[in-house]
Structures are given as structure tokens and as C-alpha cells.
């Protein structure tokens, strides 16, 4: 399931701006879910646990995303897997990862996780140099594996609650915290500060398109299976995405490896 959250994080950026308002209106019209009556405690507990008060609107956005996926993204991803050798696809994935490391590094530091920041820094340095500009992931083989890190996780580490589940059109499953995080990460990304010009435009569109294809291609079998086996794929995806995201946040919070040799460190009590 690792691919799912990555897929959700990366699929975006191709929405024409003039579509935003009508879409928001159409989805807003679908409205809110009706909470169950207060005298049914089990039903109320379930409603709160699902954390999806905007479910009707979210389902509209899901239908839109699902339709686009069927006609566009999934066929492209299938063709991508079919035409390119696994090794080449691996390199594409590595390059995209490597471009993302500065943002991860910033977030690792803001999360107050020095060892995770160290891992990311080693990945950036090793993969950019020995890994030939990020084509090869030598760092993983040498003991600096990849982990998830973004501003949504940073906000979670700072204690901000996730807010209600949101299915964003084009961007996929999210919540207010991760939505803000996504925007902040775009702002932090050094690639956003390249000089303006046609090269920059081509670079950013290529990166976005390749990210979407790379992430979608990695979850073809998983998503196909969910859609075939689930009675309610929307609900199944909601459950999977929220659990997976929470586990990544817990993993980050629980990573309390020491930054200094153990003998120097003052163990916090």
C-alpha cells in the first residue's frame, strides 16, 4: 500500500483554473452527510470514527476522479508499464524521488527528527553524485532507506488534527491538514524557484505528469483489486488511505533515534 499515499500526493497540478469554481459549486451542492440520531450511540460512534461528514460531496469528487482515471490515467499507466522495462521505470522513480528530497529534508528538520533528516541528506548526496543524478538509489543499499516526509506530517507532528476526510477533485484523498501541507510543500520546493522561462515550464509539467504516471503505475494491481473485491470501493479506499497515513505519522513520531553517540546524549525522561 506504500504507493497509494504517494499516488494521492502526486496526482495533481493539471486542473485548468477556470474549472475550479463550477466544480466547487457542483460538489458543494451535493452537501453534507446527515449525522445519525443521538439516541443511537453505536451509529454516532461510527459516524465520528469514519470522519467523513462531507461524504456526499466527497463521493461526487470520487466519481469524477474515478472517471478520469478510467479514461486517462490508468490506460496511460498500463501502457507505461507495458512499454518500459522495469529497470527504466525504476530509474524514473528514483529521479523523481531525488528531486523531492530537499522538501523532505526541510520537513524532517521541522519535525525535529535529526536522524531522519540525516537519512534524507545522505540520500540526496549519495544518489545525486554516485547515483548519477538520482538515476540509481545507492543510498538504500547502503543503509539509508527512504521514508515518507511532507508538511502534512510536519503539521501532524506539531499536534494539528487532520480535520474531516476530503476527496479533492484531481488530487485525490486528503484532509484540510494535508491539503495545506501539499500547498506548503510546493512553496518550499526549490524547483519552484528556478528562473522563469520555457525550460522551467517544460520541466515542471514533465515532472508533474511523470509523477502521476509513476505513482499510478505502481498501484495498478492494488487498485484493480480494491475495485473488484470491495462492495464500496470509495469506503474501502477511505479506510486504507487514512490508516496508511496515520501509520506513517506514527512511524515518524516514534522514530526517536539519537542524533549524537549514545554516550554523549542526555536521555530525555
Amino acid at each position: 500500500m506504500r504507493g497509494l499515499s504517494e499516488f494521492c500526493r502526486r496526482t495533481g497540478m493539471w486542473m485548468p483554473h477556470r474549472l475550479v469554481l463550477p466544480l466547487a459549486l457542483a460538489i458543494g451542492l451535493a452537501g453534507c452527510a446527515t449525522p445519525p440520531p443521538a439516541d443511537e450511540p453505536d451509529a454516532v460512534a461510527e459516524f465520528q470514527q469514519l470522519n467523513d461528514p462531507l461524504e456526499p460531496a466527497n463521493r461526487v469528487a470520487y466519481a469524477l476522479n474515478d472517471g478520469l482515471d478510467r479514461v486517462l490515467l490508468r490506460p496511460v499507466a498500463v501502457a507505461y508499464n507495458y512499454t518500459l522495462a522495469p529497470g527504466v521505470r525504476g530509474m524514473v522513480h528514483n529521479v523523481l524521488d531525488n528531486i523531492g528530497t530537499p522538501v523532505m529534508l526541510a520537513n524532517d528538520m521541522m519535525q525535529g527528527k535529526p536522524r531522519r533528516a540525516g537519512d534524507t541528506l545522505m540520500r540526496l548526496v549519495l544518489n545525486t553524485t554516485l547515483g548519477a543524478g538520482g538515476l540509481f538509489d545507492v543510498a538504500t543499499d547502503w543503509g539509508w532507506p527512504e521514508h515518507d516526509s511532507d508538511f502534512g506530517m510536519t503539521l501532524a507532528g506539531w499536534g494539528l488534527p487532520e480535520g474531516p476526510y476530503l476527496m479533492l477533485p484531481f488530487f485525490g484523498p486528503s484532509n484540510p491538514r494535508d491539503g495545506v501541507g501539499m500547498a506548503a510543500d510546493m512553496f518550499i520546493a526549490p524547483t519552484g524557484y528556478l528562473p522563469h522561462g520555457p525550460q522551467n515550464t517544460i520541466f515542471s509539467y514533465t515532472k508533474t505528469a511523470m509523477s502521476a504516471i509513476d505513482a499510478r503505475a505502481a498501484v495498478i494491481d492494488d487498485l484493480d483489486r480494491i475495485k473488484a473485491q470491495a462492495l464500496d470501493p470509495y469506503a474501502t479506499l477511505r479506510s486504507l488511505v487514512r490508516q496508511h497515513r496515520q501509520s506513517k505519522i506514527d512511524e515518524m513520531k516514534d522514530d526517536n533515534r539519537q542524533a549524537a553517540p549514545a554516550a554523549w546524549a542526555v536521555t530525555p525522561k
Partner: peptide, 11 residues
Amino acid sequence: GTSLRLTQRGD
């Protein structure tokens, strides 16, 4: 990090 039985119950 995703529990199979929780996901199934959600479905």
C-alpha cells in the same frame, strides 16, 4: 499500517 479487518469492516 493498514489493518485488513478494519478495512473490511469499513467496506
